[in-house]
C-alpha cells in the first residue's frame, strides 16, 4: 500500500524529495499503525541473578600463549556472519584490522618490540600478541548510556545488544572506555551498534564461543568467571615461577573505576602497548553531582532574573 504523493512536490525537485519522504513516512505509519512500535522480543533473556555467580560466563585471554594465528578473528566472523572490513594495509606488523569494531569482535594485536640490545648474545626483541575482545564490564557504561534499553545483561551475565531495539544513536560508542562497541555505518549495514555477544546463541546451546573453540593454544579460555579467575591467578603464579616476572593480570581484579572485568587478560607489558587503557574511567560515576551543578546554575540565574523582574514591577507601581 502506498499513500498518494502530496501535490506540493510535483515541480520543484527538492520539494518533490521532501514530498516523497513524507509519503514514505505516512505510508509506514499507516500500514504499521497498530504495531508501529518496535517489535517485541518473543524470548526475553532472563535477567541475571546477581547472587548466582556460577551463571556468569567470561573469557580469560592469556597473551603469553597467543601465537597470532587470528583463528579467533576468523571463527568469530564466520560464526556471527560479520562482513569483511576491506583490504586495508596498515603497516602495523601483521595487524591490518587495527581495532575491535562493529564488524570485528575479536581483534589480534601484533606489537613488534625491537630492541637494539642483546642479552648474553641473544636479541631481546620480542613480539606481543593479544586477542582483544569486549570486556563485558559488570557495570558497563554502554549499558548505562543506552537510551532505548537495547543493551542488557543477558542470562550469562554478559553485555548484549538487542539489535531490533537499538536505534543507532551512537551514545554507547562514545561511552565505552575501551573503544570496543562500534556502529556499522557503511551503506550495506543496518546502522546499529554491534559488539561481541560472547556467542550468546552458542552458549544457549551449551557450546563454547567460537573464538575460544577455535583457539589452538588455549590462549582464549571460556568458562564460569570464578573458575577462570582461579585459573588465571594460578597461571600468573606459574609464569612468575618460571621467571616471567613481567606477566600480570589485567582486569582480573578491579581496574581503574571498574570492578573485575568479565573478559580479562594476562599481559606482559604496559597496557597501552596493547591499546588497553591503564585506568579506564567510569563516566557515570558522579553523574548526579554534574546534573545538580547544571540545574543549580540554571535555577540561580533564573532566580536572579525573577528577582530583578520583580523589582521592575514594584518600580512600575511606585512610578
Amino acid at each position: 500500500m502506498t499513500l498518494p504523493l502530496p501535490i506540493v512536490g510535483e515541480t520543484n525537485p527538492k520539494l518533490r524529495a521532501a514530498g516523497a519522504y513524507l509519503q514514505h513516512a505516512a505510508t509506514e505509519a499507516v500500514t504499521n499503525f497498530p504495531n508501529a512500535f518496535p517489535p517485541q522480543r518473543t524470548e526475553v533473556p532472563q535477567p541475571m541473578d546477581a547472587n548466582d555467580r556460577k551463571q556468569i560466563m567470561g573469557f580469560f585471554t592469556d597473551t603469553t600463549l597467543c601465537i597470532g594465528c587470528k583463528a579467533c578473528e576468523v571463527a568469530c566472523k564466520q560464526w556471527n556472519q560479520l562482513p569483511a572490513d576491506g583490504n586495508n594495509f596498515t603497516g602495523h606488523s601483521y595487524d591490518n584490522t587495527g581495532h575491535v569494531s562493529a564488524t570485528t569482535w575479536r581483534h589480534v594485536a601484533f606489537k613488534e618490540k625491537m630492541a637494539e640490545e642483546t642479552q648474553d648474545g641473544v636479541s631481546t626483541s620480542r613480539w606481543l600478541m593479544m586477542s582483544d575482545v569486549c570486556k563485558h564490564c559488570e557495570s558497563a557504561p554502554c549499558q548505562h548510556a543506552c537510551p532505548t534499553g537495547a543493551i542488557i545483561y543477558n542470562q550469562f551475565g554478559d553485555v548484549y545488544v538487542q539489535n531490533d531495539i537499538c536505534n543507532g544513536c551512537g551514545y554507547c560508542v562514545v561511552a565505552c572506555p575501551f573503544g570496543v562497541i562500534g556502529r556499522a555505518d557503511t551503506p550495506h549495514d543496518d546502522g546499529h551498534a554491534h559488539k561481541c555477544t560472547l556467542c550468546m546463541d552458542r552458549q544457549e546451546d551449551g557450546l563454547t564461543p567460537a573464538c575460544a573453540k577455535s583457539c589452538p593454544t588455549a590462549s582464549i579460555q571460556f568458562g564460569p568467571i570464578d573458575d577462570l579467575r582461579a585459573a588465571a591467578r594460578q597461571r600468573e603464579k606459574d609464569l612468575h615461577g618460571r621467571g616471567n616476572d613481567k606477566a600480570y593480570l589485567y582486569g582480573c581484579d578491579s581496574v581503574g573505576d571498574y570492578g573485575p572485568l568479565n573478559a580479562f587478560f594476562v599481559l606482559e607489558d604496559h597496557p597501552n602497548e596493547y591499546n588497553l587503557p591503564v585506568n579506564p574511567p567510569q563516566p557515570f560515576k558522579g553523574q548526579t553531582k554534574r546534573y545538580l551543578a547544571g540545574l543549580a546554575v540554571g535555577a540561580a540565574l533564573t532566580a536572579v532574573g525573577a528577582l530583578l523582574f520583580g523589582d521592575t514591577k514594584r518600580g512600575g507601581r511606585r512610578g
Binding site: 557504561p141 548505562h144 548510556a145 551514545y171 562514545v174 561511552a175 565505552c176 572506555p177 579506564p280 574511567p281 563516566p283 557515570f284 560515576k285 558522579g286 553523574q287 553531582k289 554534574r290 546534573y291 551543578a293 547544571g294 540545574l295 543549580a296 546554575v297 540554571g298 535555577a299 540565574l301 533564573t302
Partner: peptide
C-alpha cells in the same frame, strides 16, 4: 532546566577525552 543542563551532562558521561567526567560541562551549557 533539565533540557538546558542534560546536554552537558550527556557529553560528560562518555569516555571521550575532551568530555569525560568534566563537571563543568553541565553548568557551562546551562
Amino acid at each position: 532546566l533539565l533540557v538546558a543542563s542534560y546536554t552537558g551532562v550527556l557529553l560528560s558521561t562518555t569516555s571521550n577525552p575532551l568530555w569525560s567526567k568534566n563537571p563543568w560541562l553541565g553548568p557551562l551549557f546551562t
